[in-house]
Design a protein around this nucleic acid. Structure first.
Lengths: 210, 210
DNA sequence: GGGGGATTGTTAAAGATTTAACATCCTTGT
DNA sequence: ACAAGGATGTTAAATCTTTAACAATCCCCC
């Protein structure tokens, strides 16, 4: 995979959307799709679709379009989804538990293989098939498989501490659901998902129009 | 509130982060903060902080900095958070239930006032204090309060249909957790949160460095 | 086998966002 | 009262992203 240039974050997000549409198209037995069709289905412009794909190579045929299955496979490979990924979750509260059971992860190749918490009350109880384990066992589990991806669903106050321990254990990609800014060393990828902030965006835009 | 120009989406997201830091600072009894301090705490540049604020007015004192409480109040007002907002959730699956119980919403002024589902099995059971009601009752509930904000936590296949009904009922801001692109008419604000896509971003970036 | 229509890949232009630079203004100390 | 230091607000430059335009290519039909 030859990525000579820095790929915009937004492009990566759109690739996901494209891939979902392509999978649908393939399942419907459609043999070619145009950038226009992809664009319409995903809410972007056709130029955007072609530009996004151009970062990675040439996947279509001029005058014709793209083969859904082929392009789907390419995109999945670009995204690193040509394999399954084990994922651990820290924090067995409501959010952590819901994420652990969320079907959407498995559908895209992510397997929740462990849930950890510091609350002794919770240790031992199960979420779905998975038993909640004490945080101290994280390192062992992470290095055993190994696991590279983790989700943080703990209170804001302990997020930085938890993230540090995850990194020390060997986790290299982290999604942080705690509404706080945490830092990670070079080489570790961090993404923050702030649920309340999403609602705040809505109230801001609603306020704008009045 | 005089917003003469179009405000970047990213700016809105950062305001949330600033406000959280400012609240902390105020609680600690700090009397002034600089753009540099805000920047450091939220992971942006000081210039960015000042630029973001400049869209809305002048809130600081040259040579001094900002008063945390004052700036916090301004930002909350800008975001439309100088009041509480009722919110309804459609879809009482695991994700919907977790969101309904998520403490982070209430802390930022969002009250979940209703949960709706089409599954007859679920109707009548409770999530926390709130009883799951059939989708048909949505319109009535929304217009009674009225409710302007809604969260979609239903399968991708029914998301568009649900969103249409929400809009018809009077909802004007929607967060969509279903991994599918849905469309809304002019005047309705839509935000998509794709949880699997967040993990995919991580795998992409991890793949990049090898 | 050649022309018309269609669609990609790519280059250039436009637009938006971020960063940097600096003039302005405030506080403090002498 | 005034100078020095420091932080904002604002303008300009740089960077990044999106949109538009078009040449290159392919398929289909006659």
């Amino acid at each position: 995979m030859f990525k000579k240039f820095k790929i915009p974050e937004a492009t990566v997000g759109r690739l996901t959307a494209y891939s979902r549409f392509l999978k649908e198209a393939e399942e419907k037995g459609i043999s070619t799709v145009s950038s226009q069709q992809i664009a319409k289905a995903t809410g972007v412009t056709p130029a955007q679709v072609r530009k996004d794909l151009a970062y990675f190579g040439e996947f279509g045929t001029r005058g014709v379009g793209y083969n859904p299955r082929e392009l789907y496979n390419y995109i999945m490979k670009i995204l690193g989804l040509d394999r399954r990924w084990p994922v651990i979750i820290i924090g067995a509260g409501r959010l952590g538990a819901a994420l652990a059971m969320y079907k959407g992860f498995a559908e895209r190749g992510f397997d929740i293989v462990g849930i950890f918490d510091i609350d002794p009350e919770k240790i031992g109880s199960k979420i779905g098939e998975i038993e909640i384990r004490p945080l101290e066992e994280l390192k062992e589990k992470v290095q055993e498989l190994p696991v590279k991806l983790g989700i943080v669903a703990v209170p804001a106050a302990s997020a930085q501490q938890v993230v540090d321990y995850m990194v020390e254990s060997g986790i290299r990609g982290i999604i942080n659901f705690a509404p706080v800014n945490v830092s990670v060393p070079e080489g570790v990828v961090l993404r923050r998902v702030d649920l309340a902030s999403q609602l705040e965006y809505l109230t801001f835009r609603l306020g704008e129009s009045r």
